[in-house]
Structure formats: structure tokens, C-alpha cells
């Protein structure tokens, strides 16, 4: 008897729920594309953030019948690569270094554009470290993560200043850099320019060198996608790139607004001005895989190969595919 009494309400509820969902799905009719971001909050960066804030991405995607689902990855590059390998995401906004690593290990990806051609890095000298310029890091303790783009910059700084890399004690503590610097267990830190400027604001040190003086040492924030998806959905590729282009154009025409559009909880507009203000036309936001950018990408690839960080050789011309962005720029 009891079994019977329950069955009816259960069936009715199930039917109700199913119709409700079914109705919802029917009314949407937009397919979903999953886009990965390198922060836990799933917030994009660079021109992509401008495009996200101005609604360009949503607009352009809707025109081709898609909506975006943003997925945050606190584990950044390696975690995003795992998601790519498992087919769990379609696109990612991340650096080219992990994209190259993934491709060298057999994950089929394509870099179709950039959200920033020139991401800058800096050397932050800790308070009381006695470091006034890059020359002074000899014999000191510097926080750098081995096997990453930050390490590449570190090596380049040593070469420029004729310092033996082995004379600098490398401390692998990026995630806890604040505590390490504060306790004096390290004298300096290699980090993105944006990150370094924030540390300055926090009183943990000052920037003594950065890549804005030599943009060949910078690298990019790419838009990368799974080759399968990219090739099957050129309209989606172009929709995203179009959104980025519009954002770049907007930045050029409205320079006063840019820093506010890039502002996040962790980085206020005033700090961003120091990071992005060196080029008032914001030309680096162009999504084009320009020659200058490809040169940087090549340098990153060479570094990775020299240091045995890759699973095999990569044809950069295959990985960096300009087809879609060139079409969008020609529109």
C-alpha cells in the first residue's frame, strides 16, 4: 500500500521537472562553447576581458548560434592542458608556453589569435635586498619557477648582465612568494609585470627591470582551441576573433576607459596604468599573429626545446594558424 501512495507524486514531480527543463532548453536553442581562463574566478584577461566586459563575446557568439561557458582553472597551464586532452574544453585563453608543451605531447591544438601580443615580465627586488638593477642578482636568492617562461626571462637577464646562472640561488616558491619575500627568505622575484606592480603597491619591493625595454623578451596571451573544434567551426573561431578585434579598436579609440575595463578585484586601475600605459594606442591588443609575435613564440619554443621540456618537436606554422584571424582583419 505504501509503495503505491508514493509512486504517483514521484511520477508527477518527475514529469513536471522534465517538462520544465525541456521547455527551457527548447527556448534557448543556443549551443554552448566552453572557454577556459587561467584564474579560479573564470575571468578573462587582456583584450578578452575588455571584450567580455563590453559584451562583444556574447554578441558575436549569439550571431553564430552559440553562448559561452567560462571555466576557471586555478592550476593554470597544466590543468588546462589536461582538460584539452580530455576534450572537456573547446578554447582557452592562456600563454603559448603550455600550448606548445601540450602540442609536443600529442594534444592537437591550434593557436588562432592573441588577446595580447606583448605580455610583460619583471624583476622585482625585495625590500632591503640590496638589488638596484638586474646586475645585482648575482649571488642572491631569486624566486623563479623552473621550466617556465619566467625562467626564460631570468636566464636572459643573466646573459645580458654576464652573470653565471648558477651563481643565483633559485627558489621555487611562486605561489607563496608574498610570504617568502616578507620573511626575507628570498631577495627578488621574477613575475608578470602586472603581478610585480601589485607587489610594489603592497610594499614588498620595487621593479628594477622589465621586458617593456626589450619587447622580444615578452610573450603572448593566446586564444587556443582544440583542432577538431576549430576546424569544424570556423564561424565560432571568427566570432571570437571578431570580438577581440572590436575590443582592440575600442581601446584605441577610448584610451581613458581601458584601465577601468581591465580592472579586477586583485588589480586596481591605477596599477594597470603602469602596466599597460607604455603604448597609448594599445596596439598589442591586436589579435593578429604578427611577425613580431611569431618571433617571440619561436624564442619560447627554442627555450623549451633547449631545456628538454617538450615531449617532441612541434611545427610552429601548424600550431599557430593565422587563417581565421587574417580573414577577420580583412573584413
Amino acid at each position: 500500500m505504501k509503495k503505491r501512495n508514493l509512486a504517483i507524486p514521484v511520477i508527477l514531480s518527475a514529469a513536471f521537472i522534465l517538462t520544465a527543463f525541456g521547455a527551457e532548453a527548447a527556448s534557448e536553442e543556443l549551443k554552448t562553447v566552453k572557454i577556459a581562463a587561467t584564474s579560479a574566478t573564470a575571468q578573462l584577461t587582456e583584450s578578452a576581458l575588455i571584450a567580455q566586459n563590453l559584451g562583444y563575446i556574447d554578441e558575436e557568439l549569439k550571431n553564430v548560434g552559440y553562448q559561452a561557458e567560462y571555466v576557471g582553472f586555478a592550476g593554470a597551464g597544466p590543468a588546462i592542458n589536461e582538460a584539452f586532452a580530455a576534450g572537456e574544453i573547446d578554447y582557452a585563453f592562456y600563454a603559448e608556453f603550455p600550448a606548445i608543451t601540450a602540442k609536443s605531447n600529442g594534444v592537437d591544438l591550434k593557436v588562432i589569435g592573441v588577446a595580447n601580443q606583448e605580455q610583460n615580465y619583471a624583476l622585482l627586488a625585495g625590500q632591503d635586498s640590496g638589488i638596484e638593477s638586474a646586475k645585482d642578482i648575482e649571488g642572491k636568492k631569486i624566486i623563479v619557477t623552473p621550466g617556465t617562461i619566467l625562467y626564460k626571462y631570468f636566464v636572459e637577464l643573466c646573459e645580458e648582465n654576464e652573470i653565471d646562472v648558477n651563481s643565483v640561488e633559485v627558489v621555487n616558491a611562486l605561489t607563496d612568494a608574498q610570504a617568502v619575500l616578507a620573511s626575507g627568505d628570498a631577495d627578488g622575484l621574477i613575475i608578470t609585470l602586472g603581478g610585480a606592480k601589485m607587489y610594489e603597491v603592497l610594499g614588498l619591493g620595487k621593479v628594477v627591470a622589465d621586458t617593456t625595454s626589450n619587447l622580444d623578451q615578452a610573450s603572448g596571451m593566446t586564444l587556443t582551441g582544440r583542432t577538431e573544434f576549430v576546424e569544424e567551426n570556423p564561424d565560432v573561431d571568427k566570432a571570437l576573433l571578431r570580438a577581440l578585434k572590436r575590443a582592440a579598436d575600442y581601446a584605441k579609440e577610448n584610451p581613458e576607459e581601458v584601465y577601468d575595463l581591465l580592472e579586477t578585484e586583485s588589480t586596481p586601475a591605477a596599477v594597470l596604468k603602469e602596466v599597460y600605459g607604455y603604448d597609448q594606442t594599445f596596439s598589442y591588443f591586436s589579435p593578429e599573429l604578427s611577425d613580431a609575435y611569431r618571433k617571440r613564440a619561436q624564442s619560447v619554443y627554442d627555450f623549451a626545446k633547449e631545456n628538454n621540456l617538450l615531449g617532441g618537436d612541434v611545427d610552429l606554422n601548424e600550431l599557430f594558424d593565422s587563417t581565421y584571424v587574417d580573414e577577420v582583419l580583412a573584413e
Binding site: 627558489v171 607563496d176 608574498q178 610570504a179 617568502v180 620573511s183 627568505d185 628570498a186
Partner: peptide, 11 residues
């Protein structure tokens, strides 16, 4: 705990 431990006990 990690940031606190670093402050107290170094790296």
C-alpha cells in the same frame, strides 16, 4: 597553514 609556516620556519 603554508604562508604562516613559511613566515615562521622559512622555506
Amino acid at each position: 597553514w603554508i604562508p604562516l609556516i613559511i613566515l615562521w620556519a622559512g622555506i
